[in-house]
C-alpha cells in the first residue's frame, strides 16, 4: 500500500488543435483535444498535461476554452504549460479549471516569477518545466545544462543546481525533459532523471524519449521518477494507458489500476 507512480499523457496543442495527430479508432476528430482527453481519462490516465505551442499571443484564448471544456467533464488533475509568463496567465488557466501550470522560459528569464506565483497561488499548482541537455564530454563527470527555445539556446545554468533553486523558490513539482532524448524514442535520459530526482524534495515527472513501455518502467525504477510523461506512444494508439499501467505493475511498480 503506497502512493502510485503516475502516468501522464501530454497533448501538444496549437490554436486549439492537437498537433502531431492521434490515431484512435473510436475518435471522430483526431485533432480535438477534448475528445482525446476524454479517451485518456477513460483509459485511466492519472493526470493530463496540455502544452500550448500556439505561436501568436492573440490565439492564446483557444487553450483556455479547451481547458474549460475538458475540466467540465474530466475529473482528474489537469496541467497547462506553454506561454505562461505572468500571474494573470496563471489566474486565467486556474479559473478555466487547470489544477497546475507549467512555467518554463519565464522562470529562466525571471526566477522571482516562480516565487511570486507560488506565494500567490500555492506551490501545489506551480510546476517548473526544465529542458536539459548533456554538456559534459565523454569521460568527464556528467553535467547537464538548461536550454531554452526548444533546446536551441544554452543558458550556462547547471540543471541540478537550477532544479534545487526552483524548489527553494516554491516549485511544487519538476517536469524534466531531456532535450537529447525528446522525439528519439530511445527512452528517458535515466542518469539525468535520477540526478534531479535525488537532488530535490518535490516530485519529478520524467519526459522526453519514450518509445516503449519498458522505457516508462525504467524511468521509475532507474530514473527514480515519481511520474512519467509521454505523448506519441499513446497518441498513435501503439499502447493504451491501461496497457502501460499493466506493464509497470508487472515490473513491480505501484500504479492505479
Amino acid at each position: 500500500m503506497s502512493l502510485a507512480k503516475r502516468i501522464i499523457p501530454c497533448l501538444d496543442v496549437d490554436n486549439g488543435r492537437v498537433v502531431k495527430g492521434v490515431k484512435f479508432v473510436d475518435i471522430r476528430d483526431a485533432g480535438d483535444p477534448v475528445e482525446i482527453a476524454r479517451r485518456y481519462d477513460r483509459e485511466g490516465a492519472d493526470e493530463i498535461t496540455f502544452l500550448d505551442i500556439t505561436a501568436t499571443h492573440d490565439n492564446r484564448d483557444t487553450i483556455v476554452h479547451v481547458v474549460e471544456q475538458v475540466a467540465s467533464e474530466v475529473f482528474i488533475p489537469l496541467t497547462v504549460g506553454g506561454g505562461i509568463r505572468t500571474l494573470d496567465d496563471i489566474r486565467r488557466m486556474l479559473n478555466a479549471g487547470a489544477d497546475k501550470v507549467g512555467i518554463n522560459s519565464a522562470a529562466v528569464s525571471n526566477p522571482e516569477f516562480v516565487r511570486e506565483a507560488a506565494e500567490r497561488f500555492g506551490s501545489q499548482c506551480i510546476v517548473v518545466a526544465i529542458d536539459a541537455k548533456k554538456t559534459s564530454l565523454p569521460g568527464e563527470p556528467s553535467r547537464w545544462e538548461i536550454f531554452t527555445h526548444g533546446g536551441r539556446k544554452p543558458t550556462g545554468i547547471d540543471a541540478i543546481a537550477w532544479a534545487k533553486k526552483m524548489v527553494d523558490y516554491g516549485a511544487g513539482e519538476i517536469l524534466l525533459t531531456s532535450m537529447d532524448r525528446d522525439g528519439t524514442r530511445e527512452g528517458f535520459d535515466l542518469p539525468l532523471t535520477r540526478a534531479i530526482s535525488e537532488a530535490v524534495t518535490v516530485p519529478v515527472i520524467a519526459s522526453g524519449g519514450v518509445g516503449n513501455l519498458d522505457h516508462l518502467a525504467d524511468g521509475v525504477l532507474e530514473g527514480k521518477a515519481d511520474a512519467v510523461l509521454a505523448a506519441s506512444i499513446f497518441h498513435f494508439a501503439e499502447y493504451t494507458i491501461e496497457q502501460a499501467k499493466q506493464h509497470m505493475a508487472s515490473r513491480g511498480i505501484e500504479v492505479r489500476l
Binding site: S2, L3, E198, V202, P203, K224
Partner: peptide, 16 residues
C-alpha cells in the same frame, strides 16, 4: 519507503 527510496513532499498523487 521500505526500500530506502526517499519520499517526496508534497504527498502528491493517487494513494489508497
Amino acid at each position: 519507503d521500505g526500500e530506502g527510496n526517499s519520499l517526496k513532499i508534497p504527498h502528491m498523487g493517487w494513494n489508497q
